[in-house]
């Protein structure tokens, strides 16, 4: 069976597995997800690959109780906007955690997890999620 978005997922392996983003050598700002052009410097920007540590803290969060298609059996699940140590904000699930442990400012780190499965015969899409840095 042909699978939707296979090449698109494949292109994002460096980002989803290893948080590879960009650093603009002109202004010094770091970006994740990667940008196509430095929004500060535009034509004078100079983007280089930058690997983020995966460490950060919770900037905001929620518990999803009404899921999107494909996430039905994961409810309730935590989503967090994480402020990475190196600057950018990024969104993902916060897993293996109890509600009373989650709060703005709590330290987190990345783990490697399954994010989606395209049915039982489709591809598995892996990527970063966050756990509390206990």
């Amino acid at each position: 069976m042909a699978v939707k978005g296979l090449p698109a997922s494949w292109r994002k392996i460096p980002q989803r597995y290893n948080l590879i983003g960009d650093e603009c050598k002109t202004c010094g700002e770091r970006f994740f997800p990667p940008v196509t052009i430095c929004p500060n410097c535009r034509r004078t920007g100079s983007l280089e690959r930058y690997k983020f540590s995966g460490e950060g803290e919770i900037f905001s969060y929620t518990v999803v109780r009404a899921a999107q298609e494909g996430f039905d059996f994961q409810i309730p699940y935590f989503l967090g906007i994480i402020k990475l140590k190196e600057g950018p904000l990024v969104i993902s699930q916060i897993v293996d955690s109890d509600p009373e442990e989650i709060d703005i400012g709590k330290k987190v780190k990345t783990v490697f997890r399954k994010v989606r499965e395209d049915g039982s015969d489709g591809v598995i899409r892996y990527g970063y999620k966050f756990i509390l840095d206990r």
Partner: peptide, 8 residues
């Protein structure tokens, strides 16, 4: 966990 397998 729900999102873990032998790969992760």
């Amino acid at each position: 966990g729900f999102d873990e397998d032998s790969t992760t």
